[in-house]
Design a protein around this nucleic acid. Structure first.
Lengths: 307, 307
DNA sequence: TCTTGTTGATAGGAATTGGCTATCGTCAAA
DNA sequence: TTTGACGATAGCCAATTCCTATCAACAAGA
């Protein structure tokens, strides 16, 4: 049984005439005759009564023709779904963002995306890099915004921007008078870090490996404390628990709060992390990637270096 | 788009593995790969994300696969209808019978048919021969039981039985003492006939053309009257309006009523009419014809000559 | 870093199918 | 008896479908 055969019998039932039905199907009459006979043989029943000069549909043929019509309608729905769904920006996109970027980037990124692709529903997942990598590979999210280093098989990354690190300290801290902070100074300070598992912690430690040692030192003087989120760190720093190193976007622009904190850049060359967009090599909707790129192009975030 | 392709994508979506899906479809993996790609190209969308080692269905692919499944289910219904409808004795048969046979034959024929083909719904149409011929040719009925002469293009007839004519007369009629009636005697009697249009009227006139003449004679003595049905004729005869010629089955067996009428056969060779089964040459259910034959073979009607 | 195994894609050729033209057979109407 | 209409059949060609063999990509393990 083929869809073509079904189309043929529907046409014959409608036209009650093999010749006209063939014409309606844009095939020759023998083609249609043979196809109908083939289907009749396959089903083992006679669909049409060929009277000289008059075709009638048998009762069982009538039911089968009606069912064939239903089949054809359902296949039309497939084409319809396909035609409508051809717009890659029409179906949902699941976007993962790491914790240390999401809260500061998304309020700007989401409107920009709505601007670029108004019809595209967005599902956001905030999580750690490692978890996002998992979700990405399993196909549970489609895109991820995260920071290097990131290297997973089957995943392609594309740089979005470079984000410098900033030092934050409580109001009245001795470094307040310096316009730039030397990284080495941190070793002698009480530096608050994010908990283990957060990529930003690793990035900071990579910039200043000495902090790792001091965290385990037991002299009680140069110890580091840990916070569970950047917001927590901010409040811990503001309350005088120490200083910290945070991504620039989390303490500048609309997130700056001079009444609580003092923010200073590192001396040049400032340590930075590179924020990238990641997706499965096999992700079949390049238009979505393009839309995200366009959305980023629209953004005008302070303190970041577009790439 | 072909049903095979739809089967393939459903299998791939189910197995999430081209190789396994191909196995499930009893084709080689390349065959399936090519077919899926062909469908994707035709629809213009990517149905599956081919990640090394893991196949995922795209959101739009998911919807299309579900729709494809619906299509396949509907085609399965076609096969189901066909398989169930293969039994030619399962779907309704429309049977036409002429007025002068129906009332006397059907009470016996229908149970016999139910015996031969218990599952076969019967739709009965009682009418004149000419109307039955129309219905038969138009396909509004499938079979007809009627009397010769009957010759219509595209219609095949098969003898069922010969039915002798009988003379009926009121109780106490002079002919009551005769065991057989000579046809010539009718000319001098008041003979009741069925109305014009009824085939039995023509059959009687064919046996005794003289009646036709006398019907239009104006001497008032040898006139014929007309009744609208055999039952009417019976009561008209019983009430003394005259004599009549009727089919044997309508006045013998369970239809005999010696308290009202006297029934006599004609002298040999008795005039008869041949009752036949008629159907379109193209009627595609020989088993139905066979069932009707079998049902007649079961009948044991008095006064008829099986053929 | 190199090999290896797995998996889907591709190439090329054989078999099948679907379509065409030409012609036939049937049948009813003239 | 002839004719015209219509569906069936025959024979051929092209397109499709399916196969085997092979390739390419890639992740995992040595």
């Amino acid at each position: 049984m083929t869809l073509t055969e079904l189309r043929y019998i529907v046409a014959v039932a409608r036209e009650r005439h093999f010749g006209h039905a063939a014409e309606a199907c844009f095939v020759s009459q023998p083609t249609l005759s043979v196809a109908v006979k083939k289907l009749e043989d396959e089903l083992g029943i006679t669909l049409f009564e060929r009277n000289s000069g008059d075709i009638t549909v048998t009762p069982i043929g009538q039911r089968i023709v009606e069912q064939a019509q239903r089949v054809l309608e359902e296949t039309a729905v497939i084409k319809q779904i396909a035609a409508h769904g051809k717009d890659q920006l029409a179906s949902p996109v699941r976007l993962g963002v790491i914790f240390t970027i999401g809260p500061y980037l998304l309020p700007d990124l989401i409107p920009a995306l709505r601007n670029v692709a108004p019809q595209m529903p967005l599902l956001i997942e905030e999580n750690y890099t490692s978890r996002l990598a998992e979700l990405l590979k399993q196909g549970d999210i489609d895109l991820a915004i995260l920071a290097l280093p990131f290297d997973e098989p089957g995943i392609v990354v594309e740089p979005l921007y470079d984000e410098p690190f900033r030092v934050i300290m409580p109001l009245g801290h001795p470094w307040e008078k310096q316009q730039q902070i030397e990284p080495e100074l941190l070793v002698d300070e009480n530096v608050l870090l994010l908990c283990t598992g957060n990529c930003f912690r690793d990035q900071v430690l990579q910039v200043c490996p000495a902090l790792n040692r001091s965290a385990f030192s037991s002299d009680g003087h140069h110890s580091t404390l840990e916070g569970s989120s950047l917001t927590t760190i901010r409040y811990m720093v503001a309350s005088g628990s120490g200083v910290s190193v945070v991504p620039a976007t989390s303490v500048e622009g609309k997130w700056a709060d001079e009444r609580l904190l003092v923010t200073r850049p590192f001396s040049e060359p400032s340590p930075t992390r590179q924020v990238v967009l990641a997706w499965r090599k096999s992700y079949p909707r390049p238009a979505v990637i393009e839309a995200v790129r366009d959305a980023f192009a629209q953004l005008d975030l302070p303190s970041i270096t577009a790439i």
